[in-house]
Design a protein around this nucleic acid. Structure first.
Length: 289
DNA sequence: AGGCAGGTGGCCA
DNA sequence: TGGCCACCTGCC
């Protein structure tokens, strides 16, 4: 297998290596890895796309695909080519929120990936009470065991139709633990309801969220992650333990439960609350190290 | 070595 | 509605 030539990825122009890492491996997606032999090279999988990304010394970012593959359009969409990120960031309330402003400055160029719906839902079904490295292992193992081999040794996410046929016991072998039950149930529901994805994508935030939360294993946090990273709904504001920590400290929301914090976030940050969440989240993880 | 982890669902007052 | 706990298990 050969790789085609490097192409410019102008969507990521000027991004720092640190922010690139946060974008690819900060918990939005679970299918990006640095190659062990070349640590400055990222390899990712989404849908049927296998892609490598490398940043040159001048800061310019390039990507390449296997020879014969031309998923340029899908790749540009994944990185939000059609989205006016500067405009959206500018609409966040940074003028009146010094801490948000600080986070934005420290992670300039951070944005929201537009990932395929199904595998985003799958990834966050795996994510409960797990750390990123473990979630990635689950996704990797499930892809390897049940997914299509896209190129030699690289596997894509198996569709719900495929997963619906997999016994729960076999899913458990992929380190899923109790989450296997949810994956099994959700895959059976969605295999029978091919319109589910479209219904979520076509609905406004609130009804879309309710629809997702009707699935077993999907609560407020998982639903918001799926809406944000896999359905383009930037107003979704996922609240996890990190968010509880930052929000209670910065906005004095002591002892607020996650539902209240999420509501506060959506009101305070507005129509792109989810983007603000990523800035605060990235900064919080950086501080904690 | 053992507690805990980027939640959710169910049960109880 | 609000609080608590089991659920699995690999990793720090």
């Amino acid at each position: 297998m050969d790789w085609a030539k490097w192409q410019s990825l102008p969507q990521l122009h000027g991004i720092s290596p640190r922010v690139l890492q946060e974008l690819l491996d900060g918990g939005q997606s679970f299918r990006w890895n640095r190659l062990p032999e070349k640590m400055d090279l990222w390899q990712g999988v989404f849908g049927k796309v296998v892609i490598q990304i490398q940043q040159q010394a001048d800061g310019e970012v390039y990507f390449r695909q296997p020879v014969g593959e031309e998923a340029d359009i899908a790749i540009f969409q994944y990185f939000g080519a059609e989205v006016d990120w500067d405009g959206i960031v500018n609409k966040l309330p940074w003028r009146s929120d010094a801490y948000l402003q600080e986070c934005i400055e420290k992670f300039t160029g951070l944005r929201i990936l537009r990932q395929p719906f199904g595998e985003t839902l799958f990834g966050f079904l795996c994510s409960t009470a797990k750390q990123i490295t473990q979630i990635k292992q689950c996704c990797e193992q499930v892809a390897k065991a049940f997914g299509p081999e896209l190129i030699k040794g690289v596997y894509g996410w198996p569709d719900w139709n495929v997963l619906a046929e997999v016994p729960e016991a076999d899913l458990r072998k992929c380190k899923l633990g109790y989450r296997a039950k949810y994956i099994a149930a959700v895959s059976r529901i969605l295999a029978k309801d091919p319109q589910f994805e479209q219904k979520v994508l076509n609905s406004d935030y609130e009804p879309a969220r309710q629809l997702l939360m009707s699935l077993p294993g999907v609560g407020e946090k998982v639903a918001d992650c799926v809406l944000l990273f896999g359905a383009g709904k930037l107003e979704a504001f996922p609240v996890d333990t990190w968010m509880i920590k930052v929000m209670s400290r910065i906005y004095q929301l002591e002892n607020w439960d996650s539902g209240k914090v999420a509501h506060f976030g959506r009101v305070h940050f507005g129509s792109a609350a989810g983007l603000a969440q990523q800035f605060l989240f990235a900064r919080e993880r950086q501080i904690s190290v």
